[in-house]
């Protein structure tokens, strides 16, 4: 089968997931001995195409329209490119932008869409592996269709390497400007306080298990005793208990401290994306099946309200 995979860029740089989509696309194409085509839309498409020309890419279609992501442009260009290339599988990153155009493209092409794939088997029949219930179980979906779209989860596939010999082909998309109804006007960095969790050597990170805002006191006490910095998972920040610049994860900061102590954090994939690069990961959680233990180096399965004060006392 021919696979069409879509690259992602922002503010002048290709995002790493682009190279992962190349790997996922090459695997899917190999399963049936087909070609891998890439689409790169907007920005400096020529330089992006050079970077994307990695081993296993057969063709790169450049669409030189606009600078930044515009879901209307993406939807129109990909729909036209689809008709031109006639692939069987569309692969897009399962990112905030990927989820802003892939569903529209699939709907317009009337092809089924499976999102957030952690596995794609494109043999006889397309079978996609996904997670359910916050990563507690996995499921496989068989897709009975000749053509389909799949968005692939970032960091599940290795980045493609090497240098390829793809043909680079400018694609002259016919964009109907009058149909573009959403305009990107700029970007904002999420608010900065005086603490940069990205610089901390030791992070004491707190999640939903802390239950109430007042209980944060025991986290702060531990951080003080350890001379560490407090960070948090999303729910704590959503509740307004800590400022946004303390959030670790996909939509917050990516941190790589020497020691990361996750307290009452279940370890949702979005959180893990932000801290898996820590040298040593410690998890304290009363759920032995919490996904955080899959990535932790050391763990305590117990009530954090018992363990945290005891740990603090050890350092006082």
């Amino acid at each position: 089968m021919t696979v069409l995979a879509v690259a992602e860029h922002r503010r002048g740089d290709l995002r790493p997931v682009s190279y992962e989509v190349v790997t996922a696309g090459r695997e899917a194409a190999d399963a049936t001995g087909g070609d891998l085509h890439l689409a790169v839309i907007g920005g400096d498409v020529e330089s992006f195409a050079e970077d994307l020309n990695r081993e296993g890419v057969d063709a790169i279609h450049t669409v030189a329209v606009g600078e930044e992501f515009d879901h209307g442009v993406y939807a129109q260009a990909l729909t036209q490119l689809w008709a031109d290339v006639e692939p069987s599988l569309l692969l897009a990153p399962n990112t905030v932008n990927g989820l802003d155009y892939a569903p529209a493209v699939a709907e317009r092409l009337d092809i089924p869409l499976v999102t957030d794939a952690v596995g794609v088997d494109a043999g006889e029949e397309l079978v996609v592996t996904r997670e359910l219930y916050g990563s507690k179980v996995e499921t496989t979906l068989a897709v009975d269709a000749d053509r389909a779209a799949v968005t692939v989860r970032p960091s599940e596939w290795a980045a493609a390497e090497g240098h390829g010999d793809a043909t680079i082909e400018p694609f002259d998309a016919d964009i109907d400007e009058s149909a573009l109804g959403a305009r990107v006007t700029g970007f904002q960095e999420v608010g900065g306080g005086d603490v940069d969790i990205g610089e901390a050597d030791v992070l004491v990170s707190v999640g939903r298990g802390i239950e109430e805002e007042d209980n944060l006191d025991i986290i702060q006490a531990l951080a003080d005793a350890l001379d560490a910095t407090v960070s948090a998972s999303r729910p704590i920040v959503d509740n307004g208990w800590l400022p946004k610049d303390r959030q670790v994860g996909q939509s917050g900061k990516v941190v790589t401290p020497d020691v990361y102590i996750a307290i009452g954090i279940s370890g949702a994939v979005q959180h893990v994306a932000g801290m898996k690069g820590a040298d040593t990961i410690v998890a304290i959680n009363n759920d032995p099946n919490a996904p955080i233990f899959d990535i932790a180096d050391y763990g305590i399965v117990d009530d954090l309200f018992d363990v945290v004060p005891a740990l603090t006392a050890e350092f006082q």
């Binding site: 905030v96 109804g181 959403a182 990107v184 700029g186 960095e189 996909q250 939509s251 990516v254």
Partner: peptide, 13 residues
């Protein structure tokens, strides 16, 4: 729109 990595996109829809 909340993008990855602590960046928000401002958009008019």
């Amino acid at each position: 729109r909340e993008l990855e990595g602590g960046v928000e996109e401002t958009t008019e829809v």
